[in-house]
Simulated scan of single mutants.
Amino acid sequence: MATTQHYLWAAGHFLLLICSLRYFLAKLLFRAVSSFWYKASFTGALVSYAIVCQKSLGVPQPNAAWIKRALLDENVQYFLLAFWWWTSRPVTFALLPYAIFSLFHALTFTRTTLMPQFLPPGPPAQQGAAPTPHPLAKKLQLWVKANYDNAMKAVAFTELLIMGRVIFGTLTFRDALLSPFVYAFFLRQRWYQSKFTREAIAFVHAKILGFVNSPGKPPVLSQVYTQFAGIIARFGGSSLTAAAGPNAAGAGAGAGAGAGARRQ
């Protein structure tokens, strides 16, 4: 039996989905759109992530151990980032990862909680066994399982794209000066916690290396990028070159799949 808290969690995801869809459609059609839809989207994210954080971490404790555990929690990181976006000037791409997450959460909630209330179960697989899910619920479950990894790859590449957008926005005085630093620390944690992020970074790194080292390119390009990659690697506490090696092919395949998931 779903609790009130569970329904509030789902409501946050549905709010995020509906409002972000409204915002995306306006942007795609080059129409003016109120920032209300952007704020409402991240309000939904804040509600859902706050509930998850409370369930996993409990009541906040004023001690270093609890704070450290909270900051290492992925849900807390996404909650804090959502709060940053909520308080900042709208960055359209910033909504996309949250919308993808919410799509899968909303579909799962629909299958496990809403559908059983309105759709009759299927016949049991064998006599005396429990009823099987409704065929529509089964199809939904299979779709979620089949597309989850591709969607996470899409999220990883989108989060890298957001970094570029944030840097550009700061250089053109459209975004706060702190935005690149806040987002860089977020991506640093994603590197450690998400294989999809590591694969996305490895793929992009390999592509850039191939470009700057290709015949006809001035050597200074390779030198500048090597120094830049070294700075990023020291900041992340890892080696970009090592990450780009054995995983480069797999990351390339993931990029293609991720792009497909982004269009769905």
Rank of each mutant, 00 (worst) to 15 (best):
A255H: 10
P131N: 06
G12K: 02
N75L: 04
N147T: 13
R111E: 03
A251L: 06
A50R: 06
M1G: 10
S222P: 03
L80P: 02
F83V: 07
S238A: 15
D149T: 12
I208H: 02
Y192A: 13
L72A: 10
L114G: 01
F104Y: 15
K139C: 12
L103R: 13
Q193W: 05
Q141R: 15
G12D: 01
F104H: 09
A259L: 13
K68S: 10
W37P: 01
G12N: 02
A251F: 05
K139F: 08
L177Y: 13
L136V: 14
T112N: 13
Q54F: 15
Q141G: 14
R111D: 01
Y23F: 15
W9H: 15
L57I: 03
L15I: 14
H134D: 02
L96R: 12
T226E: 09
Y7M: 10
L209E: 10
F36H: 13
L103K: 12
G216C: 04
R263G: 03
L209T: 09
K39W: 05
T108K: 15
Q141D: 14
T158M: 07
W9Q: 10
L136T: 08
M115C: 10
A64T: 08
T226F: 07
S48H: 06
A202Y: 01
N63D: 15
L142V: 13
A151T: 04
G258Q: 02
R89K: 15
G230R: 08
A251S: 12
W191L: 11
A11R: 08
L80G: 05
S194I: 06
A106P: 04
S238L: 15
F235C: 02
R188M: 08
S214L: 07
A243P: 00
L187V: 08
Q223V: 14
Q189S: 12
F186L: 01
R234W: 07
P121F: 07
L46Q: 04
D149F: 08
W37M: 03
